[in-house]
Amino acid sequence: MRASELIGAPVLDTDGTRCSYVIDLRAGGDDGDLVVDGLVIGRHHWRMFGYEHREEEGPALMRRIIEMLHRHTRYVPWGDFEIDDRAVRLRRDWDDLPPLRSLRE
């Protein structure tokens, strides 16, 4: 599989309605390997800017603007979705997913 097959893919809520798109793949280290932990999904196709990471603090105004743009962005851990014919099908309701911001607190 390639990352491009997931990035931009439609995300379907548990009732089958399209609720968002895959914006990014969030990964982390695992004994030297780079392992995908989950997906960043959002109502829009807007890319992230890098300031969404706690270690990459940007100018306060820029952070505010980006947080506003991504207020409908969510994080869904690997295992809480399945990949079905180039679409991502959530196993948890969109409303139950944590906002991206809460992961940095």
């Binding site: 793949l25 982390g28 280290g29 695992d30 960043v40 800017f49």
Partner: peptide
């Protein structure tokens, strides 16, 4: 938390692709 290249979080599109 385990890291990769000194980072705890790597967003593949934001941090690597392009």
């Amino acid at each position: 938390m385990s890291t990769w290249q000194g980072r705890e979080i790597v967003d593949l599109l934001t941090d690597i692709i392009d």
